[in-house]
């Protein structure tokens, strides 16, 4: 290592030779930051999709949460501007829909529907989306459809209180959310059936089980 060798060290490259390197570095950084941005976008996408049902205030569970307070299902409007309630979207105009909201905090809810000649379907929609249970009037016994909606805890309690050795005849449906909607739909095949259909759908009773 002599002073001469030291002097022969390469001089700094001219400015024009550094540009490609700078460009390459900048390109690399752009690619890396874009990749990081895309990964973040995927996370934001998934979180948004999962949060919409949780945070939505415009869904059916919020729109119809006051219905059924009088112990029977109430008919919901199908067209806008027909009352204070928001209209049901994508609904069949030939079907009468009645809704009863439940809150299991106060105890299990008993649903009782009398069947007629028109097709009737009962469904349980939990808050946040998903149909927990669906039953049609073909399952009716002597013209009556009856079941109990309860939470997991209330179900266990009821099973524990059942008489030893006896099978309970009541139909018990476990809801994994405390709140939800009981929906009764009756198909009015002819315009003249609408009165009967409204009476059937609005006549579905829902109230405390005991």
């Amino acid at each position: 290592m002599s002073a001469i060798d030291h002097d022969a060290a390469p001089l700094p490259a001219p400015a024009q030779r550094r540009w490609p390197q700078r460009l390459r570095a900048a390109g690399m950084r752009l690619v890396l930051t874009t990749l990081a941005g895309l990964m973040l976008a995927a996370i934001v996408h998934i979180v948004t999709i999962l949060l919409i049902p949780v945070l939505s205030q415009r869904d059916a569970a919020h729109a119809y949460r006051e219905l059924g307070a009088e112990g029977h299902a109430e008919i919901v409007p199908l067209a806008r501007g027909s009352g204070a309630l928001p209209a049901l979207q994508e609904a069949d105009p030939d079907v009468i829909t009645a809704v009863c909201a439940y809150d299991l905090a106060a105890g299990p809810v008993r649903v009782l529907a009398r069947t007629g000649t028109l097709p009737l379907g009962l469904t349980l929609h939990r808050q946040g989306g998903g149909v927990i249970y669906a039953i049609t009037d073909r399952a009716a016994i002597r013209g009556v459809l009856e079941f109990l909606v309860l939470t997991e805890g209330q179900y266990d309690e009821r099973v524990a209180n059942d008489e030893e050795g006896e099978t309970s005849r009541e139909l018990r449906v476990v809801s994994d959310t405390q709140r939800g909607l009981i929906v009764a739909r009756v198909l009015a095949k002819r315009p003249s059936d609408r009165g009967d259909a409204e009476a059937l759908a609005g006549g579905v009773r829902c109230g405390p089980a005991d």
Partner: peptide, 11 residues
């Protein structure tokens, strides 16, 4: 479904 007032038909 949560973005509007929807009650889909049960399965």
């Amino acid at each position: 479904l949560a973005r509007g007032v929807h009650l889909p038909l049960g399965a």
